[in-house]
Design a protein around this nucleic acid. Sequence first.
DNA 1: TTTCCTGTTGAACGGTCATACAACAACTGC
DNA 2: GCAGTTGTTGTATGACCGTTCAACAGGAAA
Lengths: 219, 219
Amino acid sequence: MTVQQERTDVPLSKDPDVPEPTGGEPRFKRLSAEDRAGELVRAGLEVLATGGITAFTIYNICKKAGASRGLIGHHFGGKDGLLAACYAAAYAPLLQMLQAGSGTLELPDMIDELFSARHFRRDGLNIWLALWGEIAVNPALQAEHLRHYRAYEAAVTQSITDFARAKGRKVDAATLATTLIALLDGLWLELCIAPGLMSLERARHAVLSLLEPQLGPLP
Amino acid sequence: MTVQQERTDVPLSKDPDVPEPTGGEPRFKRLSAEDRAGELVRAGLEVLATGGITAFTIYNICKKAGASRGLIGHHFGGKDGLLAACYAAAYAPLLQMLQAGSGTLELPDMIDELFSARHFRRDGLNIWLALWGEIAVNPALQAEHLRHYRAYEAAVTQSITDFARAKGRKVDAATLATTLIALLDGLWLELCIAPGLMSLERARHAVLSLLEPQLGPLP
DNA sequence: TTTCCTGTTGAACGGTCATACAACAACTGC
DNA sequence: GCAGTTGTTGTATGACCGTTCAACAGGAAA
């Protein structure tokens, strides 16, 4: 498999005749531990979106973050630590959106938000594809996933429950939530691996065709 | 899970004092090109199911296949060639099932088959997770995927069209097929990354809750 | 048996991988 | 300014990676 890798690798001048290249230019920017960790996570997610899990290497990530290769070990203890942090960072926007404000998100608003251009984007969703493949075979990551997944499912179930009650409908909200989540995942998948055949509008229509027979028209 | 193939691994004696270890024991089994290729694909799929795409290495696959590391290059031109072959091999049973017999599969039979223990199994589905992550970022594999996906979608659409006509229902079969496929993928995904929360029965129920409002009761 | 075709081997090679770590330097508080 | 803290660097290391290829050997045909 050909993974071409432009090694830039500007070699530090080892020649004692030229100890310092130029004047006072600082050689690197010093960040707080928090900021640097954030930068590395951001770079890690970018790498996952671009090249999948096989491109998730210390070399690629540090190059993208413009940092030295030792930093991942220093801030996350190793590659696995960074991957876990990237996973949490990928889940955060979804959970944050679902628990927006103080209480539960209204179901129609939730649908709108899920199919906003902010969430339904290929580059962002590629990250999930890369992570799913790893979760399936990595028990530690799977355990971490389950924690987040339960929160996700609970929030969706709550939105469905509230909506059904307001409309006077009786549904099995938990089952419907599971089904909705599965459908969403499948639609995201199609957008990523068969782009051109899936679109935001088609996906939204698919979701409504699942929900409306059980919940009535969604505004 | 298939029984691991114990490598006999009789190390070649490098000592010139002992040129031949024993009698006529052949050092390796000679297979036809076709058979050997099949063995390598089988081993490749097993590796994907067990360790995901990151475990899909020449070393792992040849060890699992009980073959020498040079064989993948010889039979497939390289790792990419084997991956493409594994992808085709993973899709084959699905397409074969959908085109069983001469014509189209009846929709209820298709559902039954999809949720048979033969297809709805975690180890087999892990292979898809590993492949999806790669398809999303590998244009060559994505093109190959689109060819198979169209055949898959066409077969499902045909089954839905036939069923709807027989029941005198009017549906957008193509859209429903896309939605059904997405839901199936999502259900498979949940089985792989959140096992214990998903089961064959729950998945089957989810699919029926999508189809029956539009197609009437499925026997 | 001998010949020959071809599937098979495994060492060699150049490269990338994750990690450890000692030296270094940017900033902070003094 | 000056020291101390601590984030940062890059080399070293050993393991693993994919690919190549010359030599080898199984097995069928002559």
